[in-house]
Amino acid sequence: MPLGRLEILTVLVLLSPMFWRGRSVPMDSAVFPCLHQWYIVRWPGSVISVQGAGTGGLVREDIVCESLESPLRLGLIAFSKSLLSSLRDLIPIIAVIGLFQAAVVRAPMPEVASIMTGLVLVVIGLTLFVYGLEMGLFPIGESMAHAFARKGSVFWLMTFAFALGFATTIAEPALIAIANEAAEMAVREGTVADTAEGRAGYSLGLRLVVALAVGTAIVLGVLRILKGWPLHYLIIGGYVLVMAMTSFAPPEMVGIAYDSGGVTTSTITVPLVTALGVGLASSIQGRNPALDGFGLIAFASLTPMIFVLIYGMIL
């Protein structure tokens, strides 16, 4: 072990606010007085991190928040943090590919200049995307999720749950990428007309189906939290359904269907949906947010498979 326990712990503590991003617990303005401002999270004695409103997931009495005079400076800090995290997503991949290219293939990467441009665009894009989400969408999305969880009207809660799942999935970048790629493959195999409309139609159709599926999944997951159904029976039931339907679906849709389960749950959907789940579980008596708040994501990666298989059968 090159690193001692103390070092690892220090690094974890220093980085922890960043990692709470995806699993944050939305808080009431009453509990957390500076919800709608930029603030500093303080552990007794030392400043830990600067975060956007509503994204602080640490429910601890000894943490106080302070609004700061210069939002610009804080914005810059948040931005560079977002830049660092998108770089961190890419670096291991670049390292592995570089290593293989140099040591195994022993030839320069084809079209390396265009790939470099692309990588720069990916880093800029991810940075702006995540920064924008944390600045504008997550605070309001989380506070709305919480408001609906507290409101008590099951109808509006369900409607919101569905709309949230649907809308966030339509904009999910990984899904857009996979749907476009699937359209490209379908064109090559000749199942879809080789026109811009044919491609766009195919990929949009796929994305709409997956978005419907995620919306339904969130509704189901919310129902589960409300009723307290055990998660694993539902999941196992879903698996059985997937298996049964696979035998009736056209083989060229099976791979896409199975993959669509994994792509739906990334950048936008996970934080907002988790906020809804945890907010809901913490506002119902007798529910443990740590236990019941989870599982929405599992539903969201199960239903797209079923829906896309059905879509393949109808198509």
Binding site: S114, G118, L121, I124, L128, F129, P173, I176
Partner: peptide
């Protein structure tokens, strides 16, 4: 920012990751 970021990311995806 979200719109701009998504745009850059999708173009970069086509140029680099794929």
């Amino acid at each position: 920012f979200v719109i701009l970021g998504l745009t850059f990311f999708l173009v970069g995806l086509d140029k680099a990751l794929f």
